[in-house]
Simulated assay, not measured.
Amino acid sequence: MRASIIGLFLVLISTQWSFAQNSATEQEIKDLSKMKWEWMAEKDVDKLAKLFHERSKFVHMSGTWKKAEELDIIKTGRIWYKKADVHDVAVEVFDDTAILWNRITLQAVVRGNEVSNEFTVTEVYQQQGSGWKLLALTFSSVRDTHTIEH
Protein backbone atom coordinates (compact mmCIF):
# COMPACT_ATOMS: atom_id res chain seq x y z
CA MET A 1 0.00 0.00 0.00
CA ARG A 2 2.77 2.39 0.95
CA ALA A 3 4.61 1.66 -2.33
CA SER A 4 1.43 2.47 -4.27
CA ILE A 5 1.05 5.80 -2.48
CA ILE A 6 4.70 6.70 -3.09
CA GLY A 7 4.36 5.66 -6.75
CA LEU A 8 1.24 7.80 -7.19
CA PHE A 9 2.98 10.74 -5.48
CA LEU A 10 5.97 10.44 -7.85
CA VAL A 11 3.69 10.33 -10.89
CA LEU A 12 1.85 13.46 -9.71
CA ILE A 13 5.10 15.31 -9.02
CA SER A 14 6.59 14.41 -12.42
CA THR A 15 3.36 15.44 -14.19
CA GLN A 16 3.35 18.80 -12.42
CA TRP A 17 7.05 19.30 -13.20
CA SER A 18 6.43 18.46 -16.87
CA PHE A 19 3.46 20.85 -17.00
CA ALA A 20 5.51 23.62 -15.36
CA GLN A 21 8.32 23.06 -17.85
CA ASN A 22 5.87 23.17 -20.76
CA SER A 23 4.22 26.33 -19.38
CA ALA A 24 7.62 28.03 -19.06
CA THR A 25 8.49 27.07 -22.65
CA GLU A 26 5.11 28.33 -23.88
CA GLN A 27 5.71 31.66 -22.14
CA GLU A 28 9.23 31.85 -23.58
CA ILE A 29 7.81 31.38 -27.11
CA LYS A 30 5.09 33.99 -26.49
CA ASP A 31 7.72 36.47 -25.30
CA LEU A 32 9.96 35.70 -28.28
CA SER A 33 7.08 36.24 -30.71
CA LYS A 34 6.22 39.55 -29.04
CA MET A 35 9.85 40.69 -29.38
CA LYS A 36 9.82 39.60 -33.03
CA TRP A 37 6.85 41.91 -33.75
CA GLU A 38 8.71 44.76 -32.04
CA TRP A 39 11.90 44.09 -34.03
CA MET A 40 9.85 44.00 -37.25
CA ALA A 41 8.25 47.36 -36.39
CA GLU A 42 11.68 48.81 -35.58
CA LYS A 43 13.16 47.27 -38.77
CA ASP A 44 15.86 45.66 -36.59
CA VAL A 45 17.10 43.19 -39.19
CA ASP A 46 20.19 42.29 -37.12
CA LYS A 47 18.08 40.80 -34.31
CA LEU A 48 15.68 39.22 -36.80
CA ALA A 49 18.57 37.65 -38.73
CA LYS A 50 19.66 35.88 -35.55
CA LEU A 51 16.11 34.67 -34.89
CA PHE A 52 15.30 33.45 -38.41
CA HIS A 53 16.64 30.01 -39.34
CA GLU A 54 18.81 30.02 -42.46
CA ARG A 55 16.19 27.98 -44.35
CA SER A 56 13.12 29.75 -42.93
CA LYS A 57 10.10 30.53 -45.10
CA PHE A 58 7.61 33.40 -44.99
CA VAL A 59 4.13 33.17 -46.51
CA HIS A 60 2.34 36.46 -47.18
CA MET A 61 -0.76 37.45 -49.10
CA SER A 62 1.41 38.32 -52.12
CA GLY A 63 3.92 35.46 -52.08
CA THR A 64 6.31 33.14 -50.33
CA TRP A 65 9.99 33.83 -49.81
CA LYS A 66 13.05 32.92 -47.79
CA LYS A 67 15.02 34.60 -45.02
CA ALA A 68 17.19 36.90 -47.15
CA GLU A 69 14.23 38.37 -49.01
CA GLU A 70 12.14 38.80 -45.84
CA LEU A 71 15.02 40.67 -44.19
CA ASP A 72 15.49 42.84 -47.31
CA ILE A 73 11.75 43.62 -47.44
CA ILE A 74 11.88 44.75 -43.80
CA LYS A 75 15.16 46.67 -44.17
CA THR A 76 14.07 48.59 -47.29
CA GLY A 77 10.56 49.22 -45.98
CA ARG A 78 8.75 47.51 -48.88
CA ILE A 79 6.66 46.21 -46.00
CA TRP A 80 6.85 48.16 -42.77
CA TYR A 81 5.21 46.20 -39.98
CA LYS A 82 4.30 49.31 -38.00
CA LYS A 83 2.27 47.63 -35.30
CA ALA A 84 0.82 44.22 -34.58
CA ASP A 85 -2.06 44.38 -32.11
CA VAL A 86 -2.15 40.85 -30.71
CA HIS A 87 -5.65 39.79 -29.67
CA ASP A 88 -5.10 36.12 -28.92
CA VAL A 89 -2.16 33.71 -28.64
CA ALA A 90 -1.96 29.93 -28.40
CA VAL A 91 1.18 27.78 -28.20
CA GLU A 92 1.71 24.04 -28.56
CA VAL A 93 5.09 22.48 -27.74
CA PHE A 94 6.20 19.20 -29.30
CA ASP A 95 9.64 18.14 -28.00
CA ASP A 96 12.06 20.68 -29.59
CA THR A 97 9.39 22.32 -31.79
CA ALA A 98 6.85 24.97 -30.85
CA ILE A 99 3.96 26.28 -32.90
CA LEU A 100 2.44 29.63 -32.01
CA TRP A 101 -0.79 31.08 -33.38
CA ASN A 102 -1.40 34.84 -33.07
CA ARG A 103 -4.66 36.53 -34.00
CA ILE A 104 -3.60 40.05 -34.87
CA THR A 105 -4.58 43.32 -36.44
CA LEU A 106 -1.56 44.40 -38.45
CA GLN A 107 -0.97 48.07 -39.17
CA ALA A 108 1.53 48.23 -42.02
CA VAL A 109 2.81 50.26 -44.91
CA VAL A 110 2.95 48.16 -48.07
CA ARG A 111 4.51 49.76 -51.15
CA GLY A 112 3.73 53.19 -49.72
CA ASN A 113 0.11 52.45 -48.80
CA GLU A 114 -1.09 52.37 -45.20
CA VAL A 115 -3.09 49.17 -44.59
CA SER A 116 -4.78 47.38 -41.72
CA ASN A 117 -5.53 43.66 -41.90
CA GLU A 118 -6.80 40.93 -39.60
CA PHE A 119 -4.61 37.83 -39.67
CA THR A 120 -3.98 34.62 -37.88
CA VAL A 121 -0.21 34.24 -38.00
CA THR A 122 1.29 30.79 -37.57
CA GLU A 123 4.89 30.73 -36.34
CA VAL A 124 6.97 27.55 -36.12
CA TYR A 125 10.02 27.54 -33.84
CA GLN A 126 12.67 24.90 -33.23
CA GLN A 127 14.98 24.81 -30.24
CA GLN A 128 18.60 24.82 -31.32
CA GLY A 129 21.18 24.78 -28.56
CA SER A 130 20.08 27.16 -25.85
CA GLY A 131 17.83 29.26 -28.09
CA TRP A 132 14.98 29.11 -30.55
CA LYS A 133 14.96 29.65 -34.32
CA LEU A 134 11.96 30.70 -36.37
CA LEU A 135 11.44 28.14 -39.15
CA ALA A 136 8.23 29.45 -40.71
CA LEU A 137 5.84 32.37 -40.49
CA THR A 138 2.51 32.30 -42.35
CA PHE A 139 -0.11 35.04 -42.56
CA SER A 140 -3.68 33.77 -42.99
CA SER A 141 -6.34 36.34 -43.77
CA VAL A 142 -9.30 35.94 -41.39
CA ARG A 143 -12.43 37.75 -40.28
CA ASP A 144 -12.32 39.71 -37.05
CA THR A 145 -14.72 37.13 -35.57
CA HIS A 146 -12.14 34.35 -35.99
CA THR A 147 -11.00 32.73 -32.74
CA ILE A 148 -8.08 30.48 -31.87
CA GLU A 149 -8.98 27.40 -29.90
CA HIS A 150 -6.73 26.83 -26.89
Rank of each mutant, 00 (worst) to 15 (best):
S56H: 12
H150W: 07
V59T: 02
M1H: 14
H60K: 06
V91C: 00
Q27V: 03
I79H: 05
A90L: 02
I79S: 06
D144K: 14
L135V: 00
E54W: 10
L100K: 05
Q128D: 08
L32C: 03
G112Y: 06
Q107E: 11
W37Y: 11
N22I: 09
K50G: 02
A49F: 03
N102T: 09
I29F: 00
D144G: 10
A49H: 04
R78A: 15
S14T: 11
K43F: 03
T76S: 11
N102H: 10
D144M: 11
K30Y: 09
L71E: 02
L48Q: 04
A98M: 03
Q107W: 06
W101C: 11
F52Y: 14
E123L: 09
A108E: 07
K67Y: 02
G7C: 08
S18G: 12
F9A: 12
E149P: 11
T97S: 03
A3M: 10
H53E: 15
I73R: 04
Y125V: 06
D72M: 05
T15S: 06
V121D: 00
D95L: 12
A20S: 09
F58C: 00
F119N: 06
S4M: 15
W132F: 01
M61D: 13
R111L: 15
R143G: 12
D72I: 05
L106Q: 13
K50L: 02
D88P: 07
E114W: 06
L100S: 05
V91R: 00
K67R: 08
E70V: 10
W132M: 01
K57E: 14
E54K: 13
E69V: 04
A49I: 02
E54S: 13
E114N: 07
N102Y: 07
Q127A: 02
S4P: 13
V91A: 00
F58E: 00
S62W: 15
A3K: 10
A136S: 10
S116G: 06
A98P: 01
I13C: 14
L12T: 05
F19W: 14
K82M: 06
M35H: 11
T15A: 06
G77Y: 12
M1L: 11
W65Y: 07
G77K: 12
F94I: 15
V91P: 00
S56D: 13
D96G: 09
S62G: 14
M35Q: 14
R2L: 09
H53T: 14
K57D: 13
D46S: 13
T76H: 08
